[in-house]
């Protein structure tokens, strides 16, 4: 499917979009992100984007502010209702 080629950075995702995490490419923050529920395979809802600032995502009932530089290192796929 085309999804493979559609990988993008979390920092480029607009408000209200749903994405699945492909990879957290920051080894230093990967464990911390995982504990807050942000890790490969997880579905995220982008609740808000602060211009020049963090991306606010929701995973389950937890809301997390992800700094822009970290968001730029989180690789995501657009979420599709039908799994590939």
């Amino acid at each position: 499917m085309a999804e493979r080629g559609m990988s993008m950075r979390l920092s480029d995702v607009g408000r209200g979009r749903r994405v699945t995490v492909v990879k957290v490419a920051d080894p230093r923050l990967r464990p911390q992100a995982a504990r807050l529920g942000i890790q490969a395979g997880v579905l995220l809802l982008v609740k808000a984007v602060v211009p020049q600032g963090p991306v606010i995502v929701q995973t389950g009932p937890v809301t997390v502010a992800v700094g822009r530089r970290l968001a730029a290192r989180i690789e995501v796929h657009p979420w599709t209702r039908k799994p590939v």
């Binding site: 920051d26 230093r28 923050l29 911390q32 992100a33 807050l36 963090p54 606010i56 937890v62 809301t63 997390v64 502010a65 992800v66 700094g67 822009r68 530089r69 970290l70 968001a71």
Partner: peptide
């Protein structure tokens, strides 16, 4: 600086 990663409590 280390990027922000912050839990937002309700």
């Amino acid at each position: 600086p280390v990027p922000l990663l912050l839990d937002l409590p309700p």
